[in-house]
């Protein structure tokens, strides 16, 4: 069997699990969870520096940036201009070109605004960014994003932070089948088995934040996700058995006494 390589925009990642760094109790816990997850790519948000408390610790001091790729996101942006402003700042911060675009459309569901998302994707691609795009699970829009130059398609499993798991396997399967760029489930995964299901469908990766950070033991959950993603990928590559409506005995009938 040929080696199973996960590549996003020419970057080879060891792990198919990408993790978020939000919602943790403190940076120590964030760092331990990232370590336990085995992820080599983590998402980060761009926000104002705290100028009142100059001594406040900062996230990047806790992550080993020689090993971990930071993926700046546009969380909290509700139109393409806000998202572009955020990502241009992220690029200035350290030359980041690989970014995660998310343009939200509704505060209750945090559903992506696909019209603004497509607009921002086009501009970012023109400016030389490699854009991983958070999107709805509509196969036509996913195709549109790919045609516009997205580096990865990142459909939601269910709303951000909901923990509802994969709600529309059919659409995700259609997107996987048609896409030539990686398909990474972003948002909505609730527990390890949800990630396995996504990987068994043939997703290239999953992005998890709340399901790890909001677990009672986030570090243990991070390691559960590590195993879940590996298992799901192996099962996908192995190819599952056919489903049958009736039983088929596992032991031979010949020689029954």
């Amino acid at each position: 069997m040929k080696k199973d390589i996960f590549k996003v925009a020419n970057k080879v990642l060891k792990s198919r699990l990408i993790v978020g760094t939000g919602k943790y109790k403190n940076f120590k816990e964030t760092a331990s969870a990232v370590e336990a997850s085995g992820a080599d790519m983590v998402t980060v948000a761009v926000r104002r520096v705290n100028i009142i408390d100059k001594k406040k610790p900062i996230l990047t001091d806790y992550l080993n940036l020689n090993k971990i790729i930071l993926l700046p996101n546009t969380a909290g942006c509700f139109n393409s201009n806000e998202a572009l402003r955020t990502l241009r700042l992220a690029r200035e911060m350290g030359g980041w070109k690989l970014v995660k675009l998310e343009v939200l459309g509704d505060k209750k569901t945090l559903y992506p605004n696909m019209i603004e998302t497509i607009k921002a994707t086009k501009t970012l691609v023109k400016e030389g960014f490699k854009v991983m795009v958070y999107c709805t699970d509509d196969p036509l829009l996913a195709k549109k994003l790919e045609d516009d130059g997205a580096a990865a398609i990142m459909p939601l499993a269910s709303p951000i932070g909901s923990g509802l798991g994969l709600q529309n396997k059919i659409n995700i399967s259609l997107i996987i089948k048609q896409s030539k760029v990686p398909v990474i489930i972003d948002a909505g995964i609730g527990t390890a088995s949800d990630a396995t299901i996504a990987m068994e469908l043939g997703c290239d990766g999953v992005l998890i934040n709340s399901a790890i950070a909001n677990a009672k033991n986030p570090i243990l959950m991070a390691s559960a996700f590590k195993d879940a993603v590996i298992s799901g990928r192996k099962a996908f590559l192995a190819g599952r058995m056919n489903k049958n409506y009736l039983a088929k005995a596992s032991s031979p009938t010949k020689g029954i006494i």
Binding site: G20, K23, V46, R47, V49, L59, L70, N73, E92
Partner: peptide, 28 residues
Amino acid sequence: SIIPKSVYKKKKLKNNDIVEIVHFIGGG
């Protein structure tokens, strides 16, 4: 407007300037 690192040593601030300094924080 974004200020490139190369001009940090040259660019003077003047009255009523609006400055934003950002960094990376935890996010999903």
